[in-house]
Simulated assay, not measured.
Amino acid sequence: MPVVKISRAVSVVGNGVLSPRVAAFSSRGPSPAFPGIIKPDIAAPGVGILAAQGNSYVFRSGTSMSCPHVSAIVALLKSLHPDWSPAMIKSAIITSGICNK
């Protein structure tokens, strides 16, 4: 059974830094169907994320783990700019690098 130990944050410099890296299973572009479009537009943490499962916690990877990160940013942007359209929010995320690191 996995055991989690939460300890004080530390700064890591050099080769010990694990991010930013795009996971090997992540979508990459261009695709044969759309060679002029490079994907993904937005990237978020999705590997080795501590997630609740039943009465415990497990480490999971995938889009189900990265989606909450982007959703939270969208919710924050929408709360600050309730008049923004979905396209405006996407543009803000893409051009600011909030999720692209």
Score class of each variant (00 low, 15 high):
M65T: 00
R28C: 04
A87Y: 05
M65H: 01
V47K: 11
C99P: 03
R60E: 10
V74H: 03
G46A: 07
I49R: 03
A44H: 02
P86F: 01
R8D: 15
Y57L: 14
A72R: 06
Q53W: 12
G29W: 06
S11A: 03
F34R: 08
D41F: 04
R28L: 08
I42D: 06
V74F: 02
K39F: 11
G29M: 02
G36W: 06
V10W: 11
H69D: 04
I38L: 15
A72Y: 06
R8K: 15
L18D: 13
I42Y: 08
F25I: 12
N55Y: 10
N55K: 09
W84G: 00
H81N: 06
A43L: 12
I93Y: 07
R60H: 10
I49M: 00
L77C: 02
F59M: 14
S79E: 00
I89P: 04
A9E: 15
F34T: 09
C99D: 02
A44D: 03
P2W: 08
N15Q: 15
A51E: 15
P30H: 07
R8S: 14
V22N: 02
K78L: 06
A43H: 04
L18V: 11
P82I: 07
A75I: 08
V3N: 13
V12Y: 06
A75F: 08
K39E: 11
T63K: 05
